[in-house]
Amino acid sequence: MADQIQFELVAPERLLLSQPVEMIVLPGAEGDFGVLPGHAPFVSTIRPGVIAVFDGGQVTERLFIAGGFAEVTPERCTVLAEEAMPVGQLDRGAIDTQMREARNDLADAKDDGDRAAAETRITVAEAKLAAMEGTVY
């Protein structure tokens, strides 16, 4: 179909989603961007945030992504995710625990590497919380 684009979301361990959709909005490293069929070839890094899948003018699916890459061609949009799951599966208790652990690790961090790793985890946890409360387009 001409007005649809093939969207693929792949994690290292499995293929999460592969279906033709109308539009996808991705959280790019330098700002959110929408992908419609016929998009110019484009590669971007993804920051932690929410992928919104549009079909029939409606958001049909919201997926949380912890970072990764997107490759866009006129016919296809492929997202290589590090960690991804539907927003509905996020669990507030688990996120709070992650957040607390990450904060502790940040306090205990001995070198820059540890500190950066802990900070990344905090950013991811914050993004998860934002995703749970975030507005639907």
């Binding site: 330098e30 110019a40 070839p41 590669v43 890094t45 061609t73 290589l80």
Partner: peptide
């Protein structure tokens, strides 16, 4: 081949992609 646009720059993406690729190869 289509010429891709890169965001952020090509080097930055590559510098993130290469370590990731290493992990994928090990996996």
């Amino acid at each position: 081949r289509p010429f891709y646009e890169y965001e952020p720059s090509e080097e930055e993406i590559l510098s993130e992609l290469l370590p990731r690729n290493l992990a994928v190869q090990f996996y």
